[in-house]
């Protein structure tokens, strides 16, 4: 649940204050425009009305562009009426948590590479283990390793053995 304090988060870029809503408005505009352009250039339908596959997407794209304008306009209006001191309170920091997210994404990419090649149990042990280290810190590596192995084995037994869901096996080993 975003609270009121979150609503006033501000990015500080080169000393300039940019509100989240303004950035959102810009991203929305770019998304809307790109989507509309691709939608307009979709191939024609081989049968029936040629434009039919385009109508719905193009309308969505245009709606998105309109929404981006509305959002930017709303934000400009807010800025004109409110003094900026209120914005100073909450500053959005790109610090450790963004770093953790990037590491998690990299970890997931490794997981996706290893999943079929190394098999479910081993790749999951590595993935969950690394993730536990990321959350708990290197000092707790023993408990992290233990939890990771219990988790990957338990899920393997539950899904593969009991529920019959296919999971990739590790080459040359029984699991």
């Amino acid at each position: 649940m975003p609270g009121p304090e979150q609503a006033r988060q501000i990015f500080i870029i080169r000393g300039e204050k940019l509100s989240v809503s303004l950035i959102t408005g810009l991203i929305t505009f770019i998304t809307g425009t790109t989507y509309t352009l691709i939608a307009m250039n979709l191939p024609a339908a081989p049968l029936g009305r040629a434009n039919e596959p385009k109508i719905f997407p193009v309308s969505l794209g245009i709606l998105m562009i309109i929404l981006s304008f509305l959002l930017i306009a709303q934000e400009m209006k807010k800025r004109a009426s409110k003094d900026n001191t209120e914005y100073e309170k909450a500053v959005f920091k790109i610090d450790n948590h963004i770093k953790s997210i990037i590491l998690t994404v990299l970890n997931a990419a490794i997981y996706s590479f290893l999943f079929v090649r190394a098999g479910y149990v081993i790749s999951t042990f590595i993935f969950v283990g690394l993730e536990l280290l990321l959350f708990s810190g290197i000092k707790k590596w023993k408990s992290s390793a233990l939890i990771a192995i219990i988790f990957s084995l338990a899920i393997y037994i539950l899904f593969y053995k009991l529920l019959g869901v296919y999971l990739p096996m590790t080459p040359y080993i029984w699991i």
Binding site: Y111, V128, F159, L167
Partner: peptide
């Protein structure tokens, strides 16, 4: 939570594969 969230991640991926 430091144990909980990695487990949620593990479940999310195995669920997606399933």
């Amino acid at each position: 939570p430091r144990i909980l969230y990695p487990i949620v991640l593990g479940l999310a991926f195995v669920g997606t594969f399933a």
